[in-house]
């Protein structure tokens, strides 16, 4: 269980995180989403006591992180995978961390096997690929067999196999009753991994909701209809209360908003209109995310396509 209450972090005049409150429950994977620069990493560093909040506080399992007598056995964290001295081997890195808590060497070898680094565990970490670095970061997080895991962008730089591995690992860790908080700027990844979402933008909370509600809430929905009698159906649909019809570029395709597929289907049947396709369209999580964070994007490209064209012409 992670709780943040009014977390605020300012660097001089710039506020990175503002009055952020949320709680993360055990037993499910919670996604921590936001565009780059939204304050995800800063928030995670505050959860771990690496950064001191300007105001507000955060607790893990009821206590401030630094107040736990054995923090690694409470919370396992991976903040930017490369929190590793490049000159040291993976195994020695883990042995040093384990030593601070009297964690036995057998556990170190266990997590090395768990993340699949046995072959390279005695090599200098400086030569690790991005994926190997991520795996070592996860091994460090799991070292203390903690009830709570905080992972910052764990799928960054992984190949598809590695991404699948992390996805399954996170789900199985949550299924064991652990609290799992995973940050990402990739909505699509969270859609497949997380059950609950905490979305932030420009350091503020935008949404704290289940993945299903998040998609539904932000969804513009709509129904895609393909029919040889498109003109006829469009006229009929416009009679339907609340429905808005858009004619797509594709011939014979309509997009209907403000009503559902049942209503469209019934209407078509009543007027003997042939339908080739009737698809309820759900806004993808990605679209929902873009819509919600549109105003909260920190760095936006200010050059418009037209200007780009002008530039290249000149």
């Amino acid at each position: 269980m992670i709780e943040a209450v009014g977390l605020t972090k300012s660097y001089g005049p710039k506020t990175a995180v503002q009055d952020l409150s949320f709680s993360v429950r055990p037993g499910i994977v919670t996604g921590f989403l936001g565009p780059n620069g939204a304050g995800k990493s800063t928030t995670m560093r505050m959860l771990l006591g690496l950064d001191t909040p300007t105001s507000g506080h955060a607790t893990v399992n009821g206590r401030r992180y630094a107040d736990h007598p054995a923090p690694l056995r409470e919370v396992g964290a991976m903040l930017e995978a490369r929190a590793i001295h490049t000159g040291r081997s993976a195994r020695n890195h883990l042995l040093a961390l384990a030593a601070t808590h009297g964690i036995p060497t057998s556990r170190v070898d266990e997590v090395i096997d768990l993340v699949g680094l046995r072959e390279v565990a005695r090599r200098r970490a400086g030569g690790f690929s991005l994926g190997m670095g991520q795996r070592l970061g996860i091994a460090s997080a799991l070292l203390g067999d903690p009830a709570t895991l905080i992972l910052d962008e764990p799928v960054n730089g992984l190949d598809p196999e590695g991404i699948l591995w992390i996805r399954n690992l996170l789900k199985s860790l949550a299924a064991e009753g652990r609290t799992v908080l995973v940050s990402s700027h990739l909505m699509s990844e969270m859609a497949l991994t997380a059950e609950h979402l905490i979305v932030i933008g420009r350091g503020r909370l935008i949404a704290d909701t289940s993945v299903a509600d998040f998609t539904a809430g932000a969804s513009r929905g709509g129904v895609r209809v393909r029919t040889p009698q498109a003109d006829e159906l469009a006229v009929l649909l416009r009679e339907l209360p609340g429905a808005m019809v858009a004619v797509e570029d594709e011939p014979g395709v309509l997009t209907v908003e403000g009503t559902d597929s049942e209503a469209v289907g019934r209407l078509a049947a009543e007027h003997r209109v042939v339908l080739y396709e009737l698809t309820p369209r759900q806004a993808s999580l990605e679209e929902a995310f873009m819509e919600l964070t549109r105003d909260a994007v920190e760095y936006e490209a200010v050059v418009r396509p037209a200007e780009l064209v002008k530039e290249s012409a000149a």
Partner: peptide, 20 residues
């Protein structure tokens, strides 16, 4: 979904001490 809180068991029960 399970709501039982996970209890750490595979990493001993040592606390952080200066000698460690």
């Amino acid at each position: 979904m399970s709501t039982a809180t996970y209890v750490s068991k595979r990493a001993g029960d040592g606390k952080v001490t200066l000698p460690r």
